[in-house]
Design a protein around this nucleic acid. Structure first.
Lengths: 186, 186
DNA sequence: CGATAAATGTAGCACTTGCTACACAGGCTT
DNA sequence: AAGCCTGTGTAGCAAGTGCTACATTTATCG
């Protein structure tokens, strides 16, 4: 009667959320098979059985995380449209400061680093996430913006620069830069 | 008579350039003691003898690389002052595209990722390199700029965003953004 | 010269890595 | 009933990790 009733059959789809949770809190650097398996309540043996290889697992996992990220964006999308570009930036940066987004941001830089080093699955995930963010940004642009497409790319560049500077304790630098740009008002 | 005359006494300072070269081409991920030692023509044993621990070695190494980076900036500093902010950005991005800078950029994102994960020596190195870049940028601002300090921070944010987007094959996105910002002209 | 310390080589330890071989259960079809 | 495919557990391997113990060479100094 002590049987934990672990019938739920354990598929790729049932494993991915558990793996994603582990990676989001512990980082990609610690993403070796045994720790991942422990986090998912299995063995490395089973992870390889289900995913084929670690490389395939990582590709699936990053894809899954990209989906979760997109969903989080949707959920955070404010209903009212912003009135100015500055308001768009302010909203997004406010969301970037939210605790819920921190694990994603931390993971993001690891993905970027891996992409630059040429790891294919990282490149794919990075592109997917950035495409998603750019598309979402375009829908967030003010209704009367003269150049929503170009403006979204401009804001994306500023936002990513700001996030990077924030990641290395240069958040003030980026903030002062945004003030000087005229987008934000003090 | 086959003796390679390996007299040069091998100090920290003689090792660091060799280690830096290896890390710049192979990345921090491959920076384990034995490969590093091979690249420097020694043994892991000797690296620990000279640096005490891997952690101390990495701290020294990142500090050294930050110095090299600063020197590279000095060397690349154009003599003539830029006439506009757009020209400053264009110059720096041109330099960022130079092949000589690629290893630094690739390393940069690994340092950022490590800094975000809380590795102290990475944080220190990241701060040092960004302080250096910001200071240099201020000296590069146009002579007639109304707000050189704020402007430099604004440009730095844009530049870092552009570099990141370029790192994940979104260089076009950043370029279009800079065009839309009015800083660059087509 | 002899003693002492610094520098270097050789082995090894305990651990983690991705991955595999083998056995064994249960349900499925034939 | 006989086979068979899917799922799972246990062991293990070869390679690599940071680091240490011990022995040896080499240089320095009294």
């Amino acid at each position: 009667m002590n049987e934990p009733a672990k019938k739920p059959p354990m598929t790729r789809d049932s494993l991915l959320p558990l793996l994603a949770a582990h990676v989001l809190t512990h980082g990609l650097g610690q993403a070796s098979l045994r720790p991942l398996a422990r986090a998912a309540g299995t063995s490395d043996r089973m992870l390889l059985y289900h995913f084929g290889s670690k490389e395939a697992l990582m590709a699936d996992l990053l894809g899954h995380i990209a989906q979760v990220y997109a969903a989080a964006l949707d959920a955070a999308m404010g209903s009212a449209r912003a009135a100015s570009r500055g308001e768009v930036v302010a909203r997004i940066l406010a969301q970037g400061d939210a605790p819920a987004m921190q694990p994603f941001l931390a993971l993001w830089w690891e993905i970027v680093a891996g992409a630059v080093r040429g790891i294919a699955s990282y490149r794919t995930a990075a592109r997917a996430m950035m495409d998603e963010l750019l598309g979402w940004l375009e829908t967030q642009m003010p209704a009367d913006d003269p150049d929503p497409k170009g403006g979204a790319r401009y804001l994306l560049t500023l936002i990513e620069g700001t996030l990077m500077l924030g990641a290395i304790d240069h958040g003030d630098t980026a903030h002062d830069g945004l003030l000087a740009s005229g987008l934000l008002r003090p």
